[in-house]
């Protein structure tokens, strides 16, 4: 066996697993998008593009846009907070950094539902934050915090922040401090150095974090259900409803297909960008 075949061999079990247990079932569901819905929730096996067309019906497409808006806002906030945290960690003495990273990512290891419920405890009308406001003497009207769009964004940002911290920390910790010093030496202020040297060199980490948070948020249905309180639907909730309550599997499949296409497009764009940033092979000659 030649040495260059060995990686292929090592990949095979994982590939079989992924293909057999992920890709095939997904494909089986997605193909439903091209069939008609039966009279009593069954499936009528005649080809149609109606389901896909329905996704772009303003009624539903608006939910798509709304979900993208919430996912985008969450991703943007997570990137600002996560980059700042990663920057601070990377600026600490090297020996403390693994510990700080560990703490930053710690909540990630607890159950998603538990973490989301914790926000209900914090945000509800008799919750910790309201009580805290009362305790410091605030008597006025407090805005409804739980069951709102803001609550959903808070929940999504909180849940996916560790991703961004990790994805931004990686390029930040690899920076050669002398490159920053060279910028200062050539006459740049600390802020200009950040804007023209540090930030451009770490943009791939931010982009990775953004895409991950966006992709995970746009399809999320747990956080909108718990923290949004049914005030509005995100695309994930709509898919959930088609499969489990409305019994319209073909439309659910069509929604999922568009969602997956958006996600794959973003992830691929991000992969191409990361490759280019790391001086991918194609970029060398020229």
């Amino acid at each position: 066996m030649s040495a260059d075949r060995r990686p292929l061999l090592l990949m095979t079990p994982a590939m079989i697993w992924l293909f057999g247990l992920m890709v095939v079932p997904c494909a089986l569901i997605l193909v439903l998008a091209f069939f008609r819905r039966g009279l009593y929730g069954g499936i009528e096996y005649t080809w149609t593009l109606e389901n896909l067309a329905l996704v772009f019906d303003p009624l539903y497409f608006q939910i798509f846009l709304k979900s993208a808006g919430i996912a985008g806002l969450s991703a943007a906030i997570a990137c600002v907070l996560g980059y700042a945290a990663a920057y601070a960690i990377a600026a600490m003495p090297r020996r403390h950094q693994p510990m700080l990273l560990f703490f930053a990512v710690l909540p990630f290891w607890s159950n998603y539902l538990v973490r989301t419920y914790a926000w209900i405890v914090l945000l509800n009308r008799e919750g910790l934050i309201v009580n805290l406001a009362r305790w410091v003497g605030y008597e006025g009207e407090l805005p409804q915090m739980l069951y709102s769009e803001q609550a959903v964004v808070i929940g999504l940002v909180y849940n996916y922040l560790p991703f961004v911290i990790l994805s931004c920390y990686a390029p930040l910790s690899r920076l050669n401090p002398e490159v920053n010093e060279a910028s200062r030496d050539l006459g740049a202020s600390a802020w200009t150095t950040f804007r023209r040297v540090t930030l451009p060199m770490t943009v791939p980490g931010i982009a990775t974090g953004f895409v991950f948070v966006f992709v995970l948020s746009i399809g999320n249905f747990v956080t909108p259900a718990l923290l949004g309180g049914g005030q509005f639907q995100m695309i994930g909730n709509l898919v959930y409803a088609q499969f489990l309550t409305a019994n319209d599997w073909p439309f659910g499949a069509a929604l999922s297909m568009v969602l997956i296409a958006v996600m794959l497009g973003l992830l691929m764009g991000q992969a191409v960008m990361a490759d280019r940033a790391s001086g991918g092979k194609g970029a060398r000659d020229g």
């Binding site: 050669n176 010093e181 910028s183 200062r184 050539l186 006459g187 740049a188 023209r196």
Partner: peptide, 30 residues
């Protein structure tokens, strides 16, 4: 004085070129 206010320039042992900039951009930066 901070480094950016000193009329001295340092050529680093590691060169410390800006990897995301071209040769021209590196030289024009200062």
């Amino acid at each position: 004085l901070t480094p950016n206010r000193r009329p001295l320039n340092l050529m680093f042992q590691s060169y410390a070129l800006f990897p995301h900039m071209t040769v021209t951009q590196n030289i024009a930066y200062g």
